[in-house]
Design a protein around this nucleic acid. Structure first.
Length: 414
DNA sequence: TCTGGGGTCCTAGGACCC
DNA sequence: TCTGGGGTCCTAGGACCC
């Protein structure tokens, strides 16, 4: 049996609120009742809300309109995106000074593997190391980060909730579950809904069997859980309830998809308006693709209707593409297909690309410049298309995004 | 004053190939 | 003439996370 792993989860406290206050100390910094999320006038939700507003029942994920109804004296501001990315990178840089094995789980969460650093940190307890990392991040960035620790990622993730400092508690910002205590921790302190991967739908299915806490699941053998929830989910639940989780922390894997979507201020039924929107999203997605030096084989268009139902259509081509022309043409064809299937007002449109490959891997001769067969009339990208997109990128880089516009069915105005 | 945007992963069926 | 599976790729839909 090898030594237990030493996994930490670092979670930035009230990240969006904290960053907003940091970048605007006179405004957001002096507003106790602060809600961050959404654009003014848009149909947005709360990304992060200050403790003072939570007293009124404001929660992240809640429509901003509802949050302001619950707490009318609150101020709502959009997410300071640029500052958040910058602060996220700054926190990561500090974390990497303590271990090279840091994996970003989201903009405000990182897993750290400190296995093998025992001698380096004088065999001190994991909680002590975590407290030192916490102090270093606070000192370098001005942001408070809480730590959960344990022998795997599941335990570290669940532990952090017990570390977070809240008004009226004596918490320190660090909570570590000692090796061997995983099962007891799960049984005594964890609700099934807290386990990552158990969302609203799974909770419903669990509730039908009167399973709410981890302790409710423990008496049932794996066979019963498999019968109730399917073989995969049953086995998964049996293991999770006992605190068994993945203990590997790997550095970030390359992105698998890139997408953009937009919710309209009001539902839209005008076909030309929908086409303009999808063309714009396709261009944005194409620009991101090239920005990351990637190419894509699959394009997906997604529409969300007034009733929140979602329809999507995707198309995979033989040779990876990167130009606005190719991405946009495929997206417009997919949109036409979706609108033929269901012509009703939509509240959201989205365009995404997947099947990503490194553009640097393109080798002379590997890609045929002549039109090839992707099922007949499909658009295949030419060298000219790629050059044009890159030229447009350069102009936009110099003069801003509005410098070059492309309308549906028209040639790019360059 | 209803319900974002950027992702990941899983499932299931059909096509196609060996 | 009848009867196979397994593996992979693609598409559509859906659950879930922050």
């Amino acid at each position: 049996m090898s030594d237990p792993r030493r996994i930490l989860l670092a979670d930035a406290d009230q990240f969006f609120v904290a960053v907003a206050r940091l970048v605007d100390p006179e405004g957001a910094g002096k507003t106790p009742m602060l809600i961050v999320g959404g654009r003014p006038g848009s149909r947005g939700v709360v990304c992060s809300a200050s403790y003072e507003t939570r007293v009124f029942g404001v929660r992240s994920g809640m429509p901003i309109a509802r949050a302001l109804k619950l707490c009318p004296q609150a101020t709502s501001i959009p997410v300071p995106r640029g500052a958040c990315s910058k602060m996220s990178r700054a926190i990561r840089t500090v974390l990497e000074q303590f271990t090279p094995v840091v994996r970003g789980a989201s903009i405000d969460e990182w897993y750290l593997d400190l296995t093998g650093t025992e001698a380096l940190y004088h065999h001190e307890a994991l909680a002590v190391t975590a407290a030192r990392i916490r102090a270093a991040v606070l000192d370098a960035t001005g942001l408070s980060v809480s730590f959960g620790g344990g022998t795997n990622r599941l335990i570290a993730k669940l532990a952090v909730e017990f570390g977070k400092m809240k008004p009226g508690t004596d918490r320190t910002g660090v909570f570590v579950v000692e090796p061997g205590q995983e099962a007891a921790f799960m049984k005594e302190r964890v609700a099934l809904a807290d386990i990552p991967g158990i969302g609203p739908r799974f909770q419903q299915a669990l509730a039908v069997r009167e399973l709410v806490s981890v302790a409710d699941v423990l008496p049932h053998d794996v066979g019963a859980l498999e019968r109730w929830f399917g073989s995969r989910a049953g086995q998964w639940l049996w293991r999770r309830a006992r605190g068994v989780g993945d203990a590997t922390v790997t550095v970030r894997e390359p992105a698998k998809s890139i997408s953009h979507e937009d919710t309209f201020r009001r539902d839209v039924s005008n076909e030309a308006a929908i086409q303009r929107e999808v063309a714009g999203l396709a261009a944005k997605t194409g620009a991101d693709l090239r920005d990351h030096r990637l190419m894509a084989r699959t394009v997906t268009v997604k529409l969300k209707y007034t009733d929140f139902s979602i329809r999507s259509a995707s198309r995979t081509v033989k040779e990876a593409i990167e130009s606005d022309r190719a991405v946009t043409d495929l997206a417009m064809a997919l949109l036409a297909h979706l609108r033929r299937r269901r012509r009703a007002p939509i509240r959201l449109a989205g365009v995404g690309v997947s099947g990503l490959a490194d553009a640097a891997d393109r080798q002379a001769g590997l890609f045929d410049e002549s039109p090839s067969t992707n099922g007949g009339a499909s658009p295949v990208e030419s060298l000219r298309d790629r050059r044009l997109s890159r030229a447009v990128d350069v102009i936009r880089g110099k003069f801003g995004d509005g410098a070059v516009q492309r309308g549906p069915g028209r040639d790019p105005a360059v």
